[in-house]
Design a protein around this nucleic acid. Structure first.
Lengths: 339, 339
DNA sequence: CCAGAATTTGGGAGCGCTCCCAGGTTTTCA
DNA sequence: TGAAAACCTGGGAGCGCTCCCAAATTCTGG
């Protein structure tokens, strides 16, 4: 009755100030972790906040202040959905974990082909302080465009276009290298690969690792077929490889999901896995352990991926200096029955 | 130099008003789609908005207005991650698609066991207008708690606890029913099931469908083993079933991912699929098509799931009357080689 | 011992918008 | 034909906070 307009519930900064016996300027300083606040005031404010259950109003902070207190997670969805799904969920979990406890909102944007311009306008329009761009397609211009407007970003997955964008990626090269070394240690000599698309960094880096592993031992690096990240394409690629070299004795497949298709073809053609042909995948996705036979694969920690991207972005927003431009996360070989 | 404080880029509502030759009240009315605006003014405002590339400031709208212009997507993550991942990504895509073009932000929250109370405080603290709660675990109290505070919510997946929460779910019952009818039409008579957990609606509903399908034809409904949504547990359940009835001729598995484990066991025991034992899964997840043999399964459209939840929530927020309390989405049988 | 620097505090303008109010104009209906 | 109802508009208070400014206090070093 006495309220003019319907107010949001909860106490305001003014009440905290009153209870703590200081001004609202001081409360604001404490909340934002500024220096030039006496220990005495800081304690009093913290007590008052706890007592009242105060939580700052996000909209007001954003409106009054010079930052948005929010970051965006931008998913660039150009095909390759199959690869994206489990990857994406894991990354998201990591991002969220890293954000926990900070007063930063996570906004989600998916790259609809229709609204490229609108999206850029939104992102650079002061609604967010920075963006995490998960861009599986290496040549996507979005990260660069955003970066050039001065918006702090971190790209997930090495961007292909030259220049220097901050990014986080799994160490695809060394993962593949380790896979090939493992195959060689098993005595395999005719080692093929089903590579990812040539326009994706993830595809290229895994291919390079395979090449290096073979080159180390003077083995031939001819048996390459490019494919996309689907089981069907993996099957097709395997057929091509068998056509090129029916006597191959191992294949490194750049994604578990493609390995599934490849294994189907191998088994249909009467090859025994791993006796005739050893198979190593990549990702250690949920399908790897339940494949028949269980798939030896290179594990990447997607949750760590999300956490690291977020950490890097927040560090930059906090004004930290000397941050590494790019961060590669370790991979590890998971040995199962297929190799 | 002339700017006192660093301002956000872009035009403000005042400029739109000036260009359109009206007051900012009128511009606000147009933006919010209120009635009591002449067609002439409306046109002028729209032209001015397009001309200036104006986009309303979210923080200011939220602060000044009585709504937050944001909804939350709350993921209740109590185990069952494997099921959740692809499901979750699809739902998210649907949510996003439905939100496109509206001035509604999507906030993401994952249920960290640690911050249950903080999360509720945040959600009911006026930061969001409503919430989508994806809660696979049927007895999760969060949806009910939120609903009781008056926050509009839509639950994804039928909530188990009695009462009347608005929810969206796949028609698990009829999907299972159709699967069983298909098996019966194939001449199978000893049809087992690997059911989901008994404390999840999704598990119970699929089990009920199986029961009904058998009951329709007077078949025995004894061969049930409960399991959780992992391949390992599926394998274990299959072993139990074979122990109970080595001569079973079909099995309906409540999730593709469990079916994978079950098929491994069947094949290891020398059963041929589908000749000896027919297998039908549920979900039509990415693994179904690449299983050996390819898995016949019940398809649910997870993207539609997300879209429908969002539509239902936005409709309620818009004050629409006579909304259905619950919505069941159709499923369809996808025939492949396993049955 | 005192000028200047460093620290600590409160006051208040204003971020960009919505929503209430008051006033004017047009339509409706008995 | 006149009063009530519906329609349309602009002005301005204020949402809850941050950040600038000015002032008060304490700490330095020559």
């Amino acid at each position: 009755m006495t309220e003019g307009r319907s107010r949001r519930p909860g106490p305001r900064i003014e009440e905290v100030a009153r209870v703590a016996g200081v001004s609202k300027s001081t409360v604001s300083r404490v909340i934002n972790g500024e220096k030039y606040v006496s220990e005495r005031s800081r304690q009093a404010v913290h007590r008052a906040i706890a007592l009242l259950g105060y939580s700052p109003n996000h909209a007001a902070r954003t409106l009054a202040g010079s930052k948005a207190n929010a970051i965006a997670l931008v998913i660039s969805e150009q095909g390759s959905r199959v690869l994206a799904d489990p990857f994406f969920a894991g990354v998201l979990r990591g991002v969220h974990a890293e954000l926990a406890g900070r007063h930063v909102q996570l906004l989600l944007m998916m790259n609809q082909p229709s609204d490229g311009a609108g999206q850029i306008a939104y992102l650079t329009g002061g609604h967010v302080d920075g963006a995490l761009v998960v861009s599986l397609h290496g040549e996507d211009p979005l990260p660069r465009t955003l970066h050039e407007t001065g918006l702090p970003i971190v790209v997930g997955g090495r961007p292909l276009a030259g220049g220097s964008l901050p990014f986080v990626d799994s160490d695809n090269f060394n993962g593949a290298l380790e896979a090939v070394r493992h195959l060689i240690s098993l005595g395999r000599e005719k080692i093929a690969t089903i590579a990812g698309p040539a326009d994706m960094a993830v595809g290229m880096d895994r291919l390079s690792g395979w090449r290096c592993g073979l080159a180390e031992h003077g083995l031939a690096v001819k048996l390459v077929v490019h494919s996309d990240f689907t089981p069907e394409a993996g099957a097709l690629a395997m057929e091509q490889l068998l056509h090129m070299a029916p006597d191959l004795d191992a294949v490194f497949v750049a994604a578990d999901i493609m390995a599934l298709g490849a294994m189907m073809v191998l088994q249909a053609r009467g090859y025994h896995i791993p006796d005739d042909v050893a198979v190593v995948g990549f990702d250690d996705s949920v399908v790897a352990a339940t494949a028949v036979p269980p798939l030896t694969t290179v594990r990447q920690d997607v949750e760590q991926f999300g956490r690291t991207m977020t950490w890097r972005l927040l560090a930059e927003l906090a004004g930290e200096e000397k941050l590494p431009l790019s961060i590669l996360l370790p991979t590890s070989l998971v040995r199962r029955a297929s190799a």
